[in-house]
Design a protein around this nucleic acid. Structure first.
Lengths: 335, 335
DNA sequence: TTGTATGCGTTATCAG
DNA sequence: CTGATAACGCATACAA
């Protein structure tokens, strides 16, 4: 690379000072006379100098970058979340690098290793499937979990209101008159994760009202996609179970269900009422618009960023566990 | 930071070799005997050593990171694009860092500076609004433009089939019997950008058929959002122009229009036919599903990554200009 | 207020 | 095949 790297040395020569003085000017440190500062700034401008981040990092041990590992950048939900995290990090002077884990426990564990290799100062890990984690030998790397695995309090943790949110959504459908409420969710119903927590909220709401629940009304997905939701809707329509309400594990899945019910000529909310989870931007614009559990994403992002930065400052501080506040957005799909 | 950094020095001591040998093993270089290699690998495993990327970068001048600057990570289209770029970059051994420009010329220009500051090896810039660019003093930084500004061939450039795609979509609506076809697009109709190119395709198609076009049928957006599309649909419905076809500048806007027409009791495709642009995943799942111009995103991502990596290797190679192939996906909204 | 010496972890070069 | 030495660009500690 013939990259015409301009160094502090060059700037120093150009300004007729030592490179230490240039460093002081660059970092806004006190103790530089105004005329000298001006001469240096001018030299920087003329030479097109830029600090070498690698050199600075090598010296300081910090990169100023926080990793954000999500299962899937393509998903509406994670894109939405990422934009909030980026905004919050920026105001604290951090840059965000987005990692894709591919929604598997392996990818999520790998993200931690990768994050360290890339020398992020900390990591916000949106863990969906990871439910066991071998503590690495040299721990104390600042990790904040955004999801349902709390690993027994070993990590800072910002959780979605999974159980309570789904309970409220399910109860809402029941109050609207639904008697046969199905749930469409992921396949793995063991461990403590998004899927199981939401399933529990669903069962709790039905149990409180003496309504049917359980396996026949559970429709499993093979992936958190619209396509999977659509396929599930077809199975629901063809099941002959007389389903009149559906709780979906996410809004993305819920949009697929909406589509799948339309394929079978079922009307929403006329024949079937629907509720989702996440309140992605699309939920307010679908036809019909989606009733959904709306966690406070801004709050979550702010909390997560606050937690990583705090842990970066003091790696040994006690961990904190938080659950995001939420609101049930009642829209056309359940009206 | 008491970060228990393990260095090559430590590994070397542990394996009873010099740190140069460790470096050779880590980088799979030839000329290391098998027994020594094994001893080193074992020492690495035991110590939990990881290369220090900053140090390597400082020495080599390369970070192995490609920047991808998009207006908005939250948007469905850019999330979709990003996932393709990440996949393509990975197979070439590069990592991708996503930058948000905020859809303004200033942000887009800033992304270039930021990208250099962060020492990305190259930048893929999805420029939406930037249409003039002051060449920086020390040029030859590997930049690939993904958008409509080609800056007179000064940059590698992968374009969407804006004009041709919109022309085909508009023609399709006309063939389906639409006579009053409106276009919903951004406000700035000067310069050469996504908005103007698509507008020209629309006008060309109508001119070929002697159909009305021009200002009364042009509905301007204040942003590329679903909310803006919805508002535009309200204006269309209330305009009294008898609009029976609408071409939307993006699918995201188109979804908003779909919603806005529903608000006014207009049926799609019964009363109004609709066509979008991008073929985001949601387009196939809306009710009705969207007819839309589907550029080959995978192709675009592959080409863009290929171009940056090639330019990273040889900064002085001639620039290339490409237009993505596309297909018109005919779905329910125009059927 | 400014300058000098030193080292961060890695790798290129060249000697053994 | 392996090892010693010298940078890479910056910032800390200390000297002037």
């Amino acid at each position: 690379m013939g990259h015409g790297m301009v160094t502090m040395e060059d700037v120093a020569r150009l300004a007729g000072v030592s490179k230490m003085t240039v460093s002081n000017v660059v970092n806004n440190r006190a103790g530089v006379s105004e005329p000298v500062r001006r001469r240096v700034l001018e030299a920087i401008r003329r030479s097109g100098y830029r600090v070498n981040v690698s050199a600075r990092t090598l010296k300081s041990g910090r990169t100023g970058v926080i990793g954000l590992a999500v299962p899937d950048v393509e998903s509406a939900y994670f894109g939405h979340l990422a934009s909030h995290v980026i905004a919050q990090a920026r105001r604290r002077g951090f840059h965000v690098a987005i990692e894709e884990t591919g929604a598997g426990a392996a990818g999520e564990a790998g993200a931690i290793a990768h994050s360290r290799t890339l020398q992020f100062d900390g990591l916000i890990l949106s863990a969906v499937e990871l439910d066991r984690l071998e503590e690495p030998a040299d721990a104390h790397y600042p990790i904040v979990m955004l999801g349902e695995q709390d690993f027994g309090g070993r990590f800072d943790h910002v959780a979605m209101p999974n159980e309570e949110g789904t309970r409220v959504a399910t109860a809402h459908l029941a109050e609207r008159g639904c008697r046969r409420i199905a749930i469409v969710t992921g396949g793995a119903l063991e461990g403590v994760n998004v899927v199981t927590r939401r399933y529990q909220g669903y069962r709790a709401a039905l149990a409180e009202r003496g309504l049917d629940a359980g396996p026949p009304l559970l429709f499993a997905l093979d992936g958190m996609s619209m396509a999977a939701g659509r396929a599930a809707a077809h199975r629901i329509a063809d099941s002959g179970l007389g389903v009149d309400g559906v709780v979906a594990v996410t809004d993305t899945v819920c949009l697929g269900i909406l589509r799948g019910l339309a394929d079978r000529g079922l009307r929403v909310p006329g024949d079937v009422r629907l509720a989702g989870f996440d309140d992605i931007p699309e939920a307010a614009f679908s036809v019909p618009s989606l009733t959904t559990v709306a966690p406070d994403h801004r709050w979550m992002a702010a909390r997560a960023v606050e937690l990583v930065t705090a842990r970066i400052e003091s790696p040994l501080r006690p961990t904190g566990q938080y659950v995001a506040p939420f609101e049930l957005m009642i829209r056309e799909s359940s009206d």
